[in-house]
Nucleic acid binder design. Structure first.
Lengths: 205, 205
DNA sequence: TTTTTTTTCTACCATTCAGTACATAATCCT
DNA sequence: AGGATTATGTACTGAATGGTAGAAAAAAAA
């Protein structure tokens, strides 16, 4: 019998903060300042914690960064794909996918662009865990999209004149490119315009 | 009358190093380690100089980084577009463009990916000069490609069934995405495969 | 040759930063 | 209540880092 998931009511003094809320704050700092650019004092302050609390809860800076990347991947980083799979038909799903990117990348939710494309990509060169996390994220995202597209082809929503995995890759790649354009200072309006063009591009495929 | 370009044989002790060679070395370090990750001691060592020489020649770290970005943009970063405009016909130009990316992004020439897409993009958030340089690079690259495509449409090499600037943007965007995939660990073989698919994608547009 | 100008090198400094020791507080267990 | 356990806050440390002072060297100018 597997252990019950019921909260085991831990022993000592309880945490005075919400782990995910703290991570969200850390995400914001890393997203704007990058890994090396974010100092632990600023991180702790943004998280509403003291440094020893941060170290006790998340380990060292590198470990905190990994936690933040995973948190981002489960929240903001997943929004576009969630919008994609939640849509009624394939056409509006593709439009919703790119429309969601405008929200997440325009800078109102943290830094401009994408934490994975613009920050993790940089650290990937020197931090192997980040490199694999980034690679896995790309593969997973593409797979999610491909699954939905496959279904759309089966139901006749989309023509099967083009390999599903290529269309999925195009969507992921346009997402990365959009992130870099956002990071280069593209305004929300410009991103929205790109989003419409991108949806056209993918549909016309 | 404008000043002659002839070497004016400066006054004091002459430089004992080649400025561009030193910058190339700095590019390599920044490309791998990022801006904050690269310390000035390592930079100077890689450049074959002492720190005071670096500061005398290029200013502070931030200024050196800007010089390195410009050097990269004029050399490695321009290779794909050079291959594109140098090709005979439009079809092979597009193929050559993506093929060149495999060489520049696979990691044998510095870090994996692209210094602009993977490193400058990160710093853009906190360094306005980098943000504008990045934006300008994207615009300039897209303009170069669009010019050549325009010509190809006029000569009938390419159909005019799709706006030239959109096709050019697609190429630039696929370049950025390729850089991120390279940074995530894609091997040269994988990049080459992507390059072929990308050329197909752009041509079939 | 002497002076002036610029580069180069050794050594150094002030600051910042990642990480921690230690004392204290809050909760559970018996 | 009392001991065990975990969290929190203050203050600190050793190391690394960006940047520089100042002397010596190499060239042109006088």
């Amino acid at each position: 019998m597997v252990e019950k998931k019921s909260e085991p009511r831990k022993r000592g003094r309880p945490r005075s903060f919400d782990t995910n809320a703290a991570l969200d704050a850390a995400v914001g700092v890393f997203w704007r300042e990058g890994y090396d650019g974010a100092d632990t004092a600023s991180l702790a302050a943004a998280m509403g914690l003291t440094k020893p609390s941060v170290y006790a809860a998340f380990g060292d800076k590198r470990s905190l960064f990994m936690h933040a990347l995973q948190r981002y991947g489960a929240t903001t980083g997943a929004e576009a794909i969630q919008a994609f799979v939640a849509a009624e038909d394939a056409t509006s799903a593709i439009a919703a996918f790119f429309a969601a990117l405008v929200t997440t990348q325009s800078g109102k939710r943290g830094g401009q662009g994408c934490l994975l494309a613009c920050v993790a990509a940089q650290c990937a060169e020197t931090m192997p865990e980040v490199k694999t996390l980034l690679a896995d994220s790309l593969v997973a995202g593409q797979a999610h999209i491909a699954d939905r597209l496959e279904q759309a082809v089966r139901t006749g929503e989309l023509p099967d004149d083009y390999p599903v995995h290529r269309r999925a890759r195009l969507m992921i790649d346009l997402m990365q490119a959009s992130a870099i354009r956002a990071r280069s200072g593209a305004t929300a309006d410009m991103l929205a315009s790109l989003a419409r063009e991108n949806a056209d591009m993918v549909l016309a495929r």
